[in-house]
């Protein structure tokens, strides 16, 4: 990486970390879901600061142009985080369904009790 892309990467990672921190501070983002993004921010920062780390990773992975290693790792991360979100959404959908069922059953029970009393 040359100096310009290095500086841009540092700015991006620091901004990302501040943004995530701000979201948690204002209670818009839960600590649980901040972890992944904090790790990404730190990762980008380390890659930008450590001079030969990216070239070394590219070499290990057998990638000729180091910047392609960034795309490769980036895509892997996006796939993983999307699977994670799919799991979270599935869980929320299931819980939502169960709450609705429980509410409907309670309403029916209340109606029955009311009918018995009146």
């Amino acid at each position: 990486m040359n100096l310009v892309s290095r500086i841009i990467s540092i700015i991006i990672s620091v901004s990302l970390l501040f943004f995530i921190f701000h979201l948690v501070r204002t209670k818009k983002l839960k600590e649980k879901y901040a972890l992944g993004w904090i790790l990404v921010g730190i990762g980008i920062f380390i890659l930008a600061v450590a001079r030969n780390l990216l070239s070394w990773i590219a070499y290990i992975l057998g990638i000729k142009v180091p910047i392609n290693a960034v795309f490769f790792l980036g895509i892997i991360f996006i796939v993983l985080i999307n699977i994670h979100f799919s799991l979270v959404i599935s869980n929320l959908a299931e819980q939502n369904k169960r709450i609705a069922q429980k509410l409907a059953l309670l309403e029916a029970e209340l109606e029955n009790l009311r009918a018995k009393i009146l």
Partner: peptide, 17 residues
């Protein structure tokens, strides 16, 4: 380890809240 992250991070965040 995950619990440590959550507690320490939320302590740090709440200082700035």
């Amino acid at each position: 380890l995950y619990y440590m992250y959550k507690v320490i991070f939320s302590i740090i965040v709440s200082i700035f809240r």
